[in-house]
Design a protein around this nucleic acid. Structure first.
Lengths: 196, 196
DNA sequence: CATCATTGTTGTCATTGACAGCATTGTAGT
DNA sequence: ACTACAATGCTGTCAATGACAACAATGATG
């Protein structure tokens, strides 16, 4: 039988994959470099070659989370759809992602990231916000959204969604009800809470 | 000189106070039961008499956080003020609290609380939401806010504020800009993002 | 094929959370 | 007062962990 060769071949990826499984199942606190090493069948110090310390591993997980989220959101956005539908679709995708990856979210939205990784992180975070700003800008050009700095206006939507996502991720809302509430939420954001 | 008596007298409070300082300064991860014990000058196992385990300590911190926040919000709300002013004042208080206690927030809004404490916690969390729901109900009675389940409508405001608070707590927004943005945020929530 | 950077390994340390067993103190009931 | 007994604190110990140092195997480069 083929004994594991001295070099694993792709330990870094294996560590990330295994870490993410553990993360989603049991949370950050349950992450142990040594346990990861054991699971993969490698010595307890081997992870150190790929991640300077535990935080570095967590940073990498956060980065990959933002990248996946950005991809999801950008793939979801349909520039042809009417404003409200377009926003609802994007918002649902966001809230759904958040609710389905609660523990990952916690790691993503925590500000303790290594300055080294944070350049990449900042870029990833930004590409996560782009779709929202784009929708707002587009709508402003058509006069469907009030004038004003697009980023500022997007922040209103972003905050409401992030709040909803947080509620879902932390259990204040069930994932289902959070997603189900999105259309109403968007409607209220667009039309305001004052009677028209 | 009075050598510390065998019994500390109020170890529990001392632990909570010291823990909260450490928490705000260095974050949850830096909390160590043994270090707390050392700082206070008791044996490393003494904290165990007051907190079953580390999570119990954290739960207690979260509970006290919610209680203080609830008190702050309830004290801030001025039922006489006009709707928008009233909301802005409450929202500012909330966002300011969140930004000033970022690490505490992280502990509060994490769903890993002991079922035992969670009854109290649930009550504390609820009394945190009461002021918002009250404002909305009041305004609905006057026809200043669209009809509908008050809690559902409040959720729109709550989500937007929680999102803003999270952004502030995690550093996406500076505390100042988060608070400074509140009036605009509320205005947009009330009047909607569509042009009127 | 000689050199050197990568990537793993073993060994070791201090720190930590948790628990067991014992000691001291305060208190409630007599 | 006295005697249980509960509450609170202490010492000792364990296994797990993250971090690091020193060493070994492998692979790439010229």
């Amino acid at each position: 039988m083929p004994v594991r060769p001295y070099h694993h071949g792709d330990l870094r990826s294996a560590l990330l994959a295994s870490a993410e499984r553990t993360l989603l199942e049991k949370g950050v606190a349950a992450l142990s470099l040594r346990e990861l090493a054991r699971d993969i069948g490698v010595s307890h110090a081997a992870p150190g070659r790929h991640f300077k310390d535990k935080q570095a591993l967590v940073d990498a997980l956060a980065l990959s989370g933002f990248e996946r989220m950005a991809q999801l959101l950008n793939a979801t956005d349909d520039a042809q759809a009417p404003l409200e539908d377009r926003l609802v679709a994007l918002a649902k995708a966001y809230v759904h992602f958040a609710a389905s990856n609660a523990e990952l979210l916690e790691v993503m939205y925590t500000r303790k990231h290594d300055p080294d990784i944070s350049e990449q992180l900042i870029a990833a975070v930004e590409s996560t916000t782009v779709p929202f700003v784009r929708i707002i800008s587009d709508a402003q050009e058509r006069g469907e959204i009030v004038a004003g700095d697009a980023w500022t206006v997007s922040l209103v939507v972003g905050a409401a969604l992030h709040g909803t996502a947080s509620f879902a991720a932390q259990g204040t809302l069930t994932p289902e009800s959070a997603v189900a509430g999105v259309p109403d939420l968007i409607h209220h954001l667009l039309n305001g809470l004052k009677p028209r």
